[in-house]
């Protein structure tokens, strides 16, 4: 499954990573090398094998329904590159 330049652009766009045209060829080469190497998994027979997403030793633990957090707008906003009062600010989004 070799990547085309258009696919490299599409996934860069999905990942919101700006890439200029000069980078596409390099990325295409590198990604294809990695994916080509990964292809070795294709030789394994995984029929009927249960997929696992992680190796956690227990089932998910839950917490009680208590308000224990919040009320810290200063901390929440302290690293914001742009803000307006108690809001984060971004370039205007046209819907």
């Amino acid at each position: 499954m070799a990547l085309e330049p258009a696919t490299v652009r599409r996934i860069a766009r999905l990942a919101r990573l700006g890439v200029d045209d000069t980078e596409i060829a390099r990325l295409q080469g590198e990604l294809n090398a990695i994916l080509g190497w990964i292809e070795q998994l294709g030789e394994l027979d995984v029929e009927g094998v249960e997929p696992i997403a992680g190796v956690g030793q227990a089932a998910l633990r839950l917490r009680p329904d208590l308000v224990t957090d919040g009320d810290k707008a200063d901390a929440v906003l302290s690293n914001a590159p742009d803000r307006a009062g108690r809001f984060y600010a971004v370039p205007k989004v046209v819907e």
């Binding site: 329904d65 208590l66 308000v67 224990t68 919040g70 009320d71 707008a73 929440v76 906003l77 809001f87």
Partner: peptide, 24 residues
């Protein structure tokens, strides 16, 4: 509910902006 699905911040309506927010 009182609190949010994955954090302990309040789930009620109408707080000051970003006041019912945990770092999660």
């Amino acid at each position: 509910s009182q609190a949010k699905l994955f954090s302990g911040a309040s789930a009620t309506y109408g707080g000051e902006p970003n006041s019912q927010v945990s770092l999660v």
